[in-house]
């Protein structure tokens, strides 16, 4: 049962939605820039193409880690997705503490990129991986604080199912002042988790040539691209579950769910197209400074019941 769920929802549905999300992102970007943009099948074609290409391993690197790291990332993303879907479909069945588990699982793709970068035996990849790690450090603090707001609102339950059920009863948490603030912080953290502009320092193409991914080609790169595309769906999905009451999969609810998702995605895309990249130390200051303060304030507001 669990495995079926993993295969169908965790992998298939998530990757299809993720690829679509990636296309939406690219298309919107293109429109913002007065371009036409790629056809809708483009992300899928990219992945199939990469699967067909030769896989290169840099000389002198540790082959099994280099090729194994992408697996780790995909596994993390798939697991996180299936936990989220399970809660979406049967909010009552989740186990207590899956909130913590999901937050942990969501960092695993970043970690796999870091390890892959380390294993590449390339100074630029090392540099990018170290930036990625620093970015993880910086956004993790405000992210945890912001994600605690729904926990507080749902009566201190760290079960995703309870958070969803509480929202079905009392309306989405984004309706509260604290919810809005926390969601804002969460959105920017997601931007960083996805390594999109302005927080794309780890992969800054014009500085360190795609950083940790520089040595990957063929299948390994396909896996990373797939993972990244899936994360483009999973992270907004998580945010929607935490603040916007999750999806509803019946009748007109589907339309409403799609609207929610596209709305969050459009915000992410617009942020990424209207900002230059910030330096890694600026990103750290940004997350540890204003973002943490806002998250803390929203948490205090939540404790006060606002």
């Amino acid at each position: 049962m669990i495995l079926l769920n993993l295969l169908v929802f965790g992998f298939l549905v998530t990757s299809i939605l993720g690829l679509t999300a990636s296309w939406v992102d690219r298309k919107v970007t293109a429109r913002v820039q007065y371009r036409v943009g790629p056809p809708f099948y483009q992300p899928l074609v990219d992945i199939i193409k990469l699967l067909g290409k030769e896989t290169l391993v840099p000389t002198g690197s540790y082959r099994s880690v280099f090729l194994g790291a992408p697996l780790l990332g995909l596994a993390g993303a798939v697991t996180a997705a299936s936990v989220l879907w399970m809660n979406q479909i049967h909010p009552q069945t989740g186990f207590t503490g899956d909130w913590i588990v999901v937050i942990y699982l969501l960092t695993i793709p970043s970690m796999s990129i870091i390890i892959g970068g380390f294993a590449s035996r390339n100074p630029l990849a090392s540099l990018g991986a170290s930036r990625e790690m620093k970015l993880v450090l910086s956004y993790e603090l405000p992210f945890i604080l912001a994600m605690l707001v729904p926990v507080v609102h749902s009566g201190l339950s760290i079960r995703l199912g309870d958070i969803l059920l509480a929202q079905r009863e009392a309306g989405a948490f984004a309706g509260n002042l604290s919810g809005i603030l926390a969601m804002l912080v969460g959105l920017l953290c997601i931007q960083a988790k996805l390594a999109l502009v302005p927080f794309d320092a780890p992969e800054a193409e014009t500085e360190i040539v795609h950083g940790p991914l520089i040595e990957y080609s063929g299948t390994g790169l396909a896996m990373y691209k797939l993972t990244k595309n899936m994360m483009l769906f999973i992270l907004p999905f998580f945010l929607i579950q935490m603040f916007l009451g999750g999806f509803s999969l019946a009748g007109w609810g589907i339309l409403w769910s799609v609207l929610k998702f596209v709305g969050v995605l459009a915000l992410i895309t617009v942020i990424r197209n209207t900002n230059p990249r910030v330096r890694i130390d600026q990103a750290m200051r940004f997350f540890w400074g204003p973002m943490t303060v806002i998250a803390a304030v929203s948490l205090i507001l939540a404790l006060l019941g606002l």
Binding site: R26, A30, P39, T206, V209, I214, E215
Partner: peptide
């Protein structure tokens, strides 16, 4: 790559690393 010609229509992207190139 720029708006007037926009080769992303054909799926053409500029790769940063040579290992991503076709």
């Amino acid at each position: 790559l720029t708006p007037r010609f926009d080769v992303e229509r054909f799926g053409i992207l500029l790769a940063g690393s040579i290992k991503h190139a076709d």
